[in-house]
Each structure stands twice: as C-alpha cells, then as structure tokens.
C-alpha cells in the first residue's frame, strides 16, 4: 500500500491546525512584540468551554462551538487587560512580559486540570460513526474536512479584515510603530485588546477542532503553542502569511519524519527543525 497520499493528507490537516495557532500568535506578537507563551492555553480554554457547554449543559453543538470560540476570545482579552496592559503601561521589557505569560500559562493549565482532571476527553458526539472519505489510497474523516474548510475560510476572512478594513490598517500601524500609531490618534491599547481577543478566539477554535478530531486534555496547550511558535519562526515571526506557510511546512516535516522514525519523536523533530531554523535562517524562510 502506498502510504504517501495519507502522509500528505495528515500533514495538511496538522498544518491547518498549526496555522490557526500561528495566526493568533503572530497577530499578538506583531502588536505587542513579545512571545505570548500563554497563547496555547487559549486553545485548551476553547476546547473545555465546548466540552462544558455541549456535554455537561447539553447545548446544541453549533451554539457551543460559537460560544466556546467567544469564551477563548474573552479570556485572552481579559488577560490583556489584567496582566499585559498594566505591564505595558509600566514599559516592562518583553522578557518580563514573556515570564508573565509563562505564569499565566502555568496557572491556567493548573486551573483547567483541577476543574476537569487530567483525563483525555473527546468532543465528538457519536464516536465511531463519522463519515469517512477516500481520496485515492488515503482516507480523511468528516471532522478533518471541516478542520480544513474552517481554517481556510478563517484565514481568508482574517486576510480580508487585515487588508481592507480600517481596523486592519490600525493593527498594521500598531505593529509597525506603536508610538507613531498613538500620535496619529489610534487608541493603541484598544486595538491591542481586540488583537488579543481575535488571536485567542482563533486559538480557541484550533483547540475545539482538535477536540472533535482526537480529544482534549489540560496539557495540550503547551504542545500546540510550541508548534504554533515553531511555525511562526519558520515563516518569520510577526508575518502572519509566513506563519501559515511555516505551519504547513512543519506539518509536512513532522509527518514525513515519523514515516521512518516512530511517532513519539514528533515533538523532538519539530524542535530540531526550530533549532535548525534559528541557526541558519533566524528570520524565517521569507527573510525580508
């Protein structure tokens, strides 16, 4: 049996998920210039919000997903207002912001683990009855098709918003130079707050999609974050389109890597890629 088509499909799906995380990470990095290590936990928050809404409270699945995405967005927005905004006002260095986000990540992961135990849970409604499509010698599940469509649609919408709207221009202005943006009358803190909301909501969606595809657990955030960060660095940090390209490249390398080596080494492979890029191409493949 030819395994390559399946590997390609797996790579694309992994790439789609990573690009959702990388999109938000890059948006936030662009606007604030610090590595937000708490970004991955937003995915966990989104996943568990849907778990509570649909499985515990019995909401309709569509409603739960929308509320779950909003919930992740609001948590991100709240964190900006409670932690990062006061730090920015004090002109804290980006290392302080990084350590603070490390603290946020540590604390949030612990809260989720206390509330929901460290058990692995799935969001899928009817386990084992999903429709499966065959593409040549490869198979793809319905959930995975939805993941692909959702992430492509989202990327298109985000691209449109950033390019064509006043809000998008304001985000670009803040990313280019926050001081100047402030001088020409942009309320930069408000814009950064929105960026946190959007970025976290997209990460939340990534967590939810993973929950439907495989499942959620409290520690999933770190792994996702790292993949998103690695993808961002491959594509050039702060460059959201580069991040998407980096995500698909990372997906390919990981999935083809485990073709010859066993699957447990996926994370290590990802980091080897990171270190190679940091050494030889620290500004990413699309070096400006």
């Amino acid at each position: 049996m030819n395994i390559i088509p399946q590997l390609i499909i797996n790579s694309i799906i992994a790439g789609a998920i990573y690009s959702l995380v990388a999109l938000g990470f890059n948006l936030i990095y662009g606007a604030t210039k610090f590595f937000n290590l708490a970004h991955g936990v937003m995915a966990t928050v989104g996943g568990y919000a849907v778990f509570v809404l649909s499985k515990v409270l019995g909401f309709h699945i569509g409603v739960s997903v929308i509320l779950g995405v909003l919930c992740a967005g609001f948590v991100g927005y709240g964190l900006d207002k409670i932690v990062y905004l006061p730090l920015r006002k004090k002109r804290a260095s980006n290392m302080i912001l990084l350590v603070a986000s490390l603290g946020v990540f540590t604390a949030l992961e612990a809260i989720i683990a206390i509330l929901f135990t460290s058990q692995f849970r799935t969001l899928a409604q009817h386990i084992g009855t999903q429709r499966i499509y065959e593409v040549g010698s490869a198979i793809i599940t319905q959930t995975q098709v939805i993941i692909l469509i959702a992430s492509l649609v989202l990327m298109a919408i985000l691209g449109f918003v950033l390019k064509k709207t006043m809000f998008g221009k304001a985000v670009k202005a803040v990313s280019d130079d926050e001081e100047v943006a402030k001088i020409i009358g942009i309320n930069t803190n408000k814009i950064i707050g929105y960026v946190f909301f959007i970025g976290s909501a997209i990460a939340g969606l990534a967590g939810i999609l993973i929950g439907f595809d495989t499942g959620i657990e409290p520690v999933m955030g770190l792994r996702l974050l790292l993949k998103g960060v690695i993808a961002s660095i491959i594509g050039g940090v702060g460059n959201i389109y580069g991040g998407v390209a980096g995500s698909f490249l990372l997906g390919l390398v990981e999935n083809f890597g485990i073709w010859k080596i066993s699957a447990e080494w996926k994370d290590a492979i990802a980091f080897v890629v990171l270190i190679i890029f940091l050494l030889f191409r620290p500004k990413g493949i699309f070096q400006k």
């Binding site: 932690v83 730090l87 804290a92 350590v99 490390l102 603290g103 990540f105 604390a107 992961e109 612990a110």
Partner: peptide, 16 residues
C-alpha cells in the same frame, strides 16, 4: 496542580 497554580500566580504577581 494547586502547587502549579501557585507558582504561576507568583510569577504573574512578581512581574506586575
């Protein structure tokens, strides 16, 4: 996990 939570909060409060 309480220990982990505590460490996280300490980091945040210290940074602030």
């Amino acid at each position: 996990y309480m220990r982990q939570f505590l460490y996280g909060i300490i980091l945040i409060v210290l940074m602030l």
